[in-house]
């Protein structure tokens, strides 16, 4: 430690310097609520997409909503996912029944899509949250 460092140890906290007792709030000063830490679990694997269409309305996902997609999660049965189907990114609920993979809509106007082995299909990521503007 240099001389300079030793002469200025009290710069750490404003309240610790001014009063005899440290404020109990000091330890919490940095903890502003941050939506990123709540909504993003894997920073490098998280992407934002915009929804277009109304097939997922029953799951509370509307056209124009912003969805948060985490590619680090393993896609699971009943989770809402973004899938690549015929060269397009599609948002649907994933259903895994035995060896049968299907993509379910949350709107009776849209039939389920059963993925056959010949379909060009891939899970792009798992949808973790929806941001809907009121």
């Amino acid at each position: 430690m240099s001389e300079k460092d030793q002469s200025t140890p009290d710069l750490l906290s404003e309240s610790r310097r001014s009063a005899g007792f440290p404020s109990p709030a000091d330890d919490y000063l940095e903890l502003k609520l941050d939506l990123n830490s709540l909504l993003i679990k894997h920073r490098e694997a998280t992407f934002f997409l915009r929804v277009e269409g109304d097939s997922m309305i029953g799951a509370g996902i509307h056209s124009g909503d912003l969805i948060i997609v985490d590619r680090a999660l393993q896609a699971q049965h009943k989770k809402v996912v973004v899938a690549v189907l015929d060269g397009e990114l599609l948002i649907r609920r994933l259903s895994l029944q035995g060896s049968e993979v299907s993509l379910l809509a949350e709107n009776s106007n849209y039939p389920a899509i059963v993925v056959s082995e010949s379909t060009a299909f891939e899970i792009w990521g798992t949808v973790t949250n929806v941001i809907h503007e009121l």
Partner: peptide, 11 residues
């Protein structure tokens, strides 16, 4: 860019 996000089709 928020204005240029990729689209997830709900169809």
């Amino acid at each position: 860019s928020w204005k240029e996000l990729p689209v997830a089709h709900a169809k």
